[in-house]
Design a protein around this nucleic acid. Structure first.
Length: 464
RNA sequence: UCCUCAGUAGCUCAGUUGGUUUAGAGCACCUGACUGUUAAUCAGGGGGUCGUAGGUUCAAGUCCUACCUGGGGAGCCA
């Protein structure tokens, strides 16, 4: 009878030895001599490999030859206590089946390390490295933790549209969605492209944010969140931006800006704590290989209260700073990266939540303060990352919201559905957006956002 | 998009102020040695139109121009 396959993660933790088992996976390395060969096997269930011991006398020579780095195999054998150092258990092989060989001359992954830049060019194979195995296991764990956090707190997961007919979010350039013949599009009488002929009968784009739709859900379900892909056609070439990225956007009825801040802080701490508790091996690997202060930094974020300051207080701190900034700071201008970095890394030395920004530099939907100058906006600034969360209390007063829409030249007719929530049973409400990949950057200690999403979409790059 | 650095073997790099016949090294790979290895070790071997296209020069991996690709920084933001 075929032995049932065990995951390597479970085998390595097992104390029940001298029993027959089956393991399947991909060969990481093989070494040895004429008598015995040692194969390090990995199946993705853990960063750790299990050692397969092969008595060469008992196997066909050609078969052993084909067990090379990258080959996929199934091993029947006995789980035994290891005679060597470095592992407590290993598999004494009885029978090996090779599913697929990997020609050592052309298989691009070798035993020794590769640069992250090179691995990006072979994104289809980089999952097979320790680094990317660790990153994507952590990414999964964080994704799961997001749902768990909200589910346990009476939030509903709301699926907002990917294709949107509203271009009013103002969160950046959008990707057009169209089925028109680009070489010969239908034209109106004035020579413009006639989008009434298009699939949806109007101009449509990929979403840049699910926030406005999430607000609609929150005005009935109380607490909702979105977690989906968003798209920005900005020509941003930085280690912190993607054209396609995942965003988490909770939206809460009856929340003011302080409630919003409480949730943001609690949420971030929960996620980081979840990683510390559930991704120990992977974090230790990343800590050792990429960022010696990673685990220490994660712990410090979980243990310390975030600093909460207003934009105006932030400006005061920056004006008194004993440091020259490339961009001089003044009230009314947005904080530049160098300013954010000073506040987080030099002055407070912990995450900082900045609120109440000048309304002229923020979006139309943010709740206006009584001073007439500021809005209840909220940015959470993290060490190394900068802005990890952007949010606000939303303007719930119909007239004030309409004024801002007019002032900022947003097409009012496209916003009728959004405005109606302020006409019928309007409530104070708040929300924020968390860039999922930026969270993963922080948690893994990676420095380029292209390394924390399986298949990064960036300007001039949509391979795979 | 702007500034800046880089592109030489499968990978990571060296290649001096342009000039010593076939452009080097380490790792990887192949062959051999070794009774249990831990990124094993040791010996030998194969492997390169020097990112692309022009240009300067008696002579270009090396200098100039444009473009492409990648890194870092900035802007936009999450």
């Amino acid at each position: 009878m075929e032995q049932r396959r065990s995951f390597i993660k479970d085998l390595l933790q097992s104390t029940d030895v001298d029993r027959d088992i089956n393991a399947k996976g991909w060969v990481r390395t093989k070494r040895g001599n004429k008598q015995v060969a040692f194969v390090a096997l990995n199946d993705g269930s853990t960063i750790n490999n299990i050692q397969i011991v092969i008595d060469i006398a008992n196997f066909d020579e050609d078969q052993i030859k084909n067990i090379t780095t990258g080959a996929s195999i199934s091993v029947n054998g006995t789980l035994v206590k290891s005679m060597g150092k470095g592992q407590s258990v290993e598999i004494q092989a009885k029978e090996i089946k090779i599913y697929g060989t990997a020609d050592p001359e052309t298989y691009p992954l070798q035993k020794k390390g590769h640069t992250l830049e090179f691995l990006r060019e072979i994104a289809h194979l980089r999952f097979r490295t320790n680094t990317f195995g660790a990153i994507f296991r952590i990414r999964h764990a964080m994704s799961f933790a997001v749902h768990k956090y909200f589910n346990d707190r009476n939030f509903y997961y709301l699926h907002t549209p990917i294709v949107t007919g509203s271009d009013a979010e103002g969160a950046g350039e959008m990707f057009r969605v169209s089925t028109l013949d680009m070489k010969n599009p239908p034209k109106t009488e004035d020579g413009e492209i006639d989008f009434s002929e298009d699939f949806f009968g109007k101009e449509t784009n990929l979403t840049v944010s699910g926030q406005l739709e999430a607000e609609l859900g929150a005005t009935a379900l109380s607490n909702v969140y979105t977690f989906g892909p968003t798209f920005r056609a900005e020509n941003s070439n930085t280690p912190r931006h993607l054209a396609e990225f995942w965003m988490i956007e909770p939206e809460m009825a009856f929340y003011d800006i302080d409630d919003d801040m409480d949730l943001a802080e609690d949420f971030l701490k929960y996620l980081i704590k979840y990683a510390l508790e559930n991704c120990k091996d992977d974090l230790e690997f990343l800590n050792k290989m990429y960022d010696n202060e990673l685990i220490e930094r994660l712990n410090s974020v979980v243990e310390n209260k975030f600093e909460r300051i207003t934009y105006t207080e932030a400006i005061d701190v920056l004006l008194k700073a004993d440091q020259k900034f490339e961009f001089p700071i003044k009230w009314g201008s947005d904080l530049q990266s160098e300013h954010e970095r000073y506040l987080v890394e030099k002055y407070y030395k912990k995450p900082v939540m900045v609120s109440d920004y000048p309304k002229i530099i923020k979006a139309f939907y943010m709740k206006q303060n009584d001073d007439g100058k500021t809005v209840r906006a909220l940015d959470v600034l993290f060490p190394r990352i900068g802005e990890i969360i952007g949010g606000s209390q939303r303007e719930e007063v119909y007239e004030k919201l309409l004024d801002r829409i007019k002032e900022m030249g947003i097409p009012e007719k496209d916003m009728w559905w959004y405005l109606e929530t302020r006409k019928f049973g309007t409530v104070p409400h708040s929300g924020f957006g968390l860039g999922f990949e930026r969270l993963i950057l922080f948690v893994t200690g990676m420095s380029n956002i292209r390394d924390v999403i399986p298949f990064p979409r960036t300007p001039k790059n949509a391979e795979f």
